[in-house]
């Protein structure tokens, strides 16, 4: 990661800016809504990204400490992926590569299948107009290239 940040600095002009976008250390939530409001909201099971996120944050901190970039400002925001069915939601997420590509151990896969099975049951019992969404929080940071020789 540190090498990647050094490479980015090399590619930027002297007044260039790096924008980093990555998820925050907070589990995503799967939500089912009907016309009346939220009928289901639970943390989505999956690979624990904490260690990867910590390494990413450490790399950014290193790049600021070593004057590759200046950390100017950041903001947190929520990204939702909505679909009319669980199958379509999972299709969108798979296509976007947003589902974890971490270790796919049998336990995690089984847990996830059971979870989405329950979400599907909620969708069926909610009936027409139900929609499912995958909501995750992310942070965007603006890092101007530092004026280092």
């Amino acid at each position: 990661m540190v090498h990647a940040l050094e490479g980015i600095r090399q590619l930027l002009r002297s007044n260039g800016v790096l924008i980093d976008i990555h998820p925050v250390r907070e589990q995503a939530v799967v939500e089912v809504r009907s016309a009346a409001g939220v009928v289901f909201a639970e943390t989505a099971p999956g690979y624990d990204y904490d260690e990867d996120l910590r390494r990413a944050e450490d790399a950014l901190a290193w790049a600021v400490e070593h004057e590759l970039f200046l950390e100017e400002k950041s903001c947190d925001f929520e990204v939702a992926t909505r679909a009319p069915s669980v199958i379509e939601l999972r299709g969108f997420m798979d296509e976007a590569g947003a589902f974890d590509d971490g270790p796919r151990d049998e336990g995690t896969v089984a847990l996830r299948e059971a979870f989405y099975g329950r979400v599907e049951d909620v969708m069926q019992s909610t009936g027409r107009g139900a929609a499912v969404s995958y909501r995750e929080r992310a942070r965007m940071t603006r890092l101007p290239r530092a004026p280092r020789p």
Binding site: A4, G7, Q10, L11, R13, V17, L18, Y49, R55, A98
Partner: peptide, 24 residues
């Protein structure tokens, strides 16, 4: 890959780099 790209790209080419959900 970024590694291959940076090895062949001209330095000081871009005004903005967006690291899009890819640092981790």
């Amino acid at each position: 890959s970024f590694e291959r790209f940076v090895a062949t790209a001209e330095p000081a080419t871009f005004d903005v780099a967006i690291l899009s959900w890819s640092l981790c």
